[in-house]
Nucleic acid binder design. Sequence first.
DNA 1: ATAATTCCTATAGTCACTAGAGCTTCAAGA
DNA 2: TCTTGAAGCTCTAGTGACTATAGGAATTAT
Lengths: 138, 138
Amino acid sequence: MLSIGSLSKRTGVKVPTIRYYEQMGLLKAAERSEGNQRRYERSDLERLAFIRHARDLGLDIPAIRELIRLSEHSQQPCADADRIAAEHLAAVREKIVRLRKLEQELDRIVSHCDGGHSIEECYVIRALSDHGLCESEH
Amino acid sequence: MLSIGSLSKRTGVKVPTIRYYEQMGLLKAAERSEGNQRRYERSDLERLAFIRHARDLGLDIPAIRELIRLSEHSQQPCADADRIAAEHLAAVREKIVRLRKLEQELDRIVSHCDGGHSIEECYVIRALSDHGLCESEH
DNA sequence: ATAATTCCTATAGTCACTAGAGCTTCAAGA
DNA sequence: TCTTGAAGCTCTAGTGACTATAGGAATTAT
């Protein structure tokens, strides 16, 4: 049986975050010691690792809740799990596209300015003031 | 003189957001009508467009506040403005790198799963359970 | 004049945590 | 066994950049 602190050290998830996951219903309410402190077993450690991995991949809490629910019905088909992951992948790809446009625009703005002028002539400030100086929409 | 609603329509910034920007000190407190409603002039419209453009590029409110401050000292050198934009560009690039790693990992996970198995065999669930199945760190 | 729309302030909610206060329990050494 | 310091507990509030709602006042259109 692990204390919340040991569980934290083993998984790299901070103590308040573990309590938060419990509150959000990702971890089942832990057993308690006589003095009301949380005690965890191996299965909790595995589930927390699962949650952490999913968070690292950017999945949000409702999605993780759903994945946990699905993972408990081992005989059901996995189409739903696949869909959740695929939708997330699509969202990540969209974000990348948007950020690439931003990158281009910022790069263009920054490279027009060597920091050696006065504010009055500064391309950074002028570009922000005048959308017409942009190359693409963003 | 524009009402807050007209200003909103012209800039595409929602009414509550305009009030929020005022509260955050990005827009100066507007003049008021006899009945205490905000009234804007051309210079406010320009500043709001500036703010909006900067937000679209992903700059946060403190950065925009600083850019506005700088833009009011037209004879100062623009090194600071340049630095703010360059730092933001670097942050955007880092985000892209991180998202690309995520994309790879998710793509690998999703493409191992065609949605036709049971949860028990599902690669999505297995990959989340076992970090050892990952190709790279993330 | 009246009705419909817009405006006002103030408060609370979003997401996934993080920080702090004030208190209790636990583990280790003397 | 006693003490001390670390770790635990609950509850509340703060983060960023808004968004939503409530309850009321002002403005605009008919």
